[in-house]
Design a protein around this nucleic acid. Structure first.
Length: 308
RNA sequence: GGACGGGUUCCCGAGUGGCCAAAGGGAGCAGACUGUAAAUCUGCCAGCUCCGCUUUCGGUGGUUCGAAUCCACCCCCGUCCA
């Protein structure tokens, strides 16, 4: 472990992993033992009313442990990494002011990465209007055309972004047209993290994980996922509704697919998502401890050593 | 019993004499990733001693220089007529 210059840094516990591995409940258990509070790093649990499908912990399950960044915006809000980083920093300060330990838990790797590695998002703002225009151009001119454009402006980024990756092409161009600087110039990360953290990744055998996911989706259906999505139907075009479990259910409500098919797609989508989460976690630069989720006994000793 | 339609690589599904190890999609695996990230995108995907070879397209036999594609019989499946 690299523990240089960590003496004065804020201590953080990170707990991540694929969907349905059991992060939330483990986090609560840990919080109780070390007098900690939980900050959710989940791009969908920030939305109010998206409860069943996002696998939010209930008030009861929280059993008194304070949770942050859950239910903080309405479903029509477009939450982003930038919001997360500032919200999470604020929560960290709040928790630490109470003399407690912040535990970051969630499956949105990008969010955790941005927080830990000090992405400087303030230098790369966003602009809905510019983005919209760019998106229109992609539709009309094709992504290849805009990729060419990016190549002239920021060859370094163009090199890394696929010609087909419309989203990233748009974003890179957006940064340039908004700030006059290229994405590659502006998006440097801090050389060193602001935090002293202990990072656990919960994992399991792939087959077991996939099975757990399938079961969890069945459970969500029993809990009334369909009704929940119906009650949120008005938001069907919002970002929040692109969450797995919601977009498929909307298709069913719109009579595009049968209920059975929707459920299958939710399971399939969740499995694919889990795969991507794991890939991101593997890729992400940070010291990590991979823990098999049914063998978490060795987690506490390490935490105790870490906290001193 | 009769009339058609069909059985293709893990699944769906193109292919109807050579350009076919066989389109396309899905799944799976691996990867990328700095303001939509539960999103978006990329690669691999019969096997091998891998610029060539070997085994695949329900089964068996045949026609042909050559078949997943044509013929015969057989085995399943679906629809229809009795």
């Amino acid at each position: 472990m690299v523990q240089t210059n960590n003496i004065n840094k804020q201590k953080l516990l990170i707990l991540s992993g694929a969907t349905a591995v059991g992060k939330s409940s483990l986090a609560i258990q840990i919080a109780k033992q070390i007098n900690g509070e939980i900050i959710s790093a989940d791009s969908m649990q920030v939305y109010r009313h998206l409860n069943i499908g996002t696998g939010k912990v209930t008030q009861e399950e929280m059993s008194g442990v304070e949770h942050y960044l859950i239910d903080i915006v309405n479903p029509d809000f477009n939450y982003s990494v930038a919001n997360f980083v500032s919200d999470a920093e604020a929560a960290i300060n709040l928790i630490s002011a109470k003399g407690k330990i912040p535990i970051i838990t969630g499956g949105t790797g990008l969010y955790i990465n941005a927080l830990l590695n000090g992405f400087n998002l303030s230098r790369t703002p966003g602009s809905e209007t510019i983005r919209e225009k760019l998106n229109d151009r992609i539709l009309n001119e094709g992504s290849q055309k805009l990729h060419e454009e990016l190549k002239n402006i920021d060859p370094e980024s163009a090199e890394k972004i696929s010609v087909n990756d419309a989203k990233r092409i748009v974003r890179a161009l957006e940064i340039y047209y908004l700030t006059g600087q290229t994405k590659s110039e502006v998006s440097q990360k801090n050389p060193e993290s602001n935090y002293d953290y202990l990072f656990f990744v919960l994992d399991d055998e792939r087959a077991a994980l996939y099975e757990r996911i399938n079961n969890r989706v069945d459970k969500m259906m029993q809990q009334g996922l369909e009704a929940e999505v119906r009650s949120l139907y008005q938001y069907k075009n919002c970002n929040s509704m692109q969450a797995i479990g919601y977009k498929e259910m909307v298709k069913h409500i719109d009579s595009e697919i049968s209920l059975e098919k929707a459920v299958d797609q939710i399971k399939q989508g969740s499995r694919n998502y889990a795969k991507r989460q794991i890939t991101y976690l593997k890729w992400m630069q940070a010291e990590k401890e991979w823990v098999t989720c049914n063998d978490i006994s060795k987690v506490m000793p390490k935490i105790n050593i870490f906290l001193g």
